[in-house]
Write a protein that binds this DNA or RNA. Structure first.
Lengths: 208, 208
DNA sequence: GTCTATAACGAGATAGAC
DNA sequence: GTCTATCTCGTTATAGAC
């Protein structure tokens, strides 16, 4: 089974954060949302973590919704860059899907939920622009996965029934669900087990 | 593919709610948590929906955490009863797993998330007793599923690799994830598609 | 068993000084 | 760009009347 390893673009907001206050705010808020949810953190939490005042946050992001939008744009952009990197590298379809799973794994290893998975749970409480951004994130994920699936089936390295779209949707749901449950149990193996099973089912009996 | 239909024990808290205030409060809070999350609703929301005061709620459930515990106990009990009903009925292993999926589907059709799936996302913010109750819920689900999987493999109607435990964990994660994403898109088909795929993979090439 | 009233606190957000 | 100070509102929770 393939296992690529350059999947850290999403793992940590910034190892040594850029000396840009707005970015530091985004880093802090991102981690808070991924661990406590959008309704589970406040400007006071971020301010106290960064050692600044709430007013300083409001200068950079007037409202909590504005902060959320900025966060979603940055997260989606980074995720797409990571997917583009997988495209640029000369990987097989299975390796690309494994790479995709590694992106999730790297987030989970930080004891965090996928930002958009967390926001999906809370979506009824989000400002409309945030809801739309979450939907866009998943649409782009599914589009990328569908392309990989179709290419893999064409070159004979992947096998699955029916159109790629629903399979891509299943993959996203499987990984988000595995992450949700693995994080609850603080047990990364629950995630890797699902990822392995997924890759095996897509490659099983291909090449015959 | 099998498709049983007596899966409404969990679908709606109570079609015509029992004339018991505590139960009505639980019904209302349950729906709020399933749609908005534990951190996305307040006593004021429940009170205004029921036309009573916040103080009345505090009489029945002193704290929000107490309300959450009572909710989790009721939800888990109902879920286990629904699983016991599947055991009592003379169903095949595949039909039992389908029945299990129908429980999720009935919740999703009410545009709600699984109570414990939602709380799993927010688990870092929950009082410790609630966290423990959420873990218990999933443990019991997995135990039941493992039993069904083992029985199905023994009688030759199901096929899967390795021990049943990790497969049971995958099933729970798949369904929770499918629910999370289907609800975001308000598209029930995304869930049924995953459930069909799951049942097919468990029954594929069995009976040979 | 439910009410009014209120306490005590934290939330998101703003004004204006530095 | 960040601060102090403040505003307003919503939150959980309690006291005590009915």
């Amino acid at each position: 089974m393939p296992r690529t390893s350059t999947a850290s673009a999403i793992a940590t907001p910034s190892k040594r954060p850029v000396d840009d206050t707005a970015e530091m705010i985004l880093d802090s808020a991102e981690t808070f949302i991924q661990t406590r949810g959008y309704n589970g953190f406040s400007y006071a939490d971020v301010a106290s973590e960064l050692g600044v005042t709430k007013a300083a946050l409001h200068y950079h992001f007037a409202t909590k919704g504005d902060l959320g939008i900025a966060l979603l744009e940055r997260y989606t952009e980074r995720f797409l860059i990571a997917l583009a990197a997988a495209d640029a590298a000369d990987l097989s379809a299975a390796e690309k899907i494994d790479h995709y799973g590694q992106l999730y794994l790297s987030v989970l290893q930080g004891r965090r939920m996928c930002l958009c998975g967390m926001l999906a749970a809370e979506h009824e409480t989000l400002p409309a622009p945030m809801r739309a951004a979450v939907l866009r994130f998943f649409d782009r994920n599914e589009t990328w996965l569908s392309g990989v699936l179709d290419a893999g089936r064409l070159d004979g390295t992947l096998r699955f029934d029916g159109p790629a779209g629903p399979v891509a949707q299943s993959i996203v749901g499987d990984l988000e669900g595995a992450m949700l449950i693995a994080r609850l149990h603080d047990d990364v193996d629950r995630f890797t087990s699902v990822l392995d099973r997924l890759l095996r089912s897509l490659t099983a009996a291909a090449h015959d």
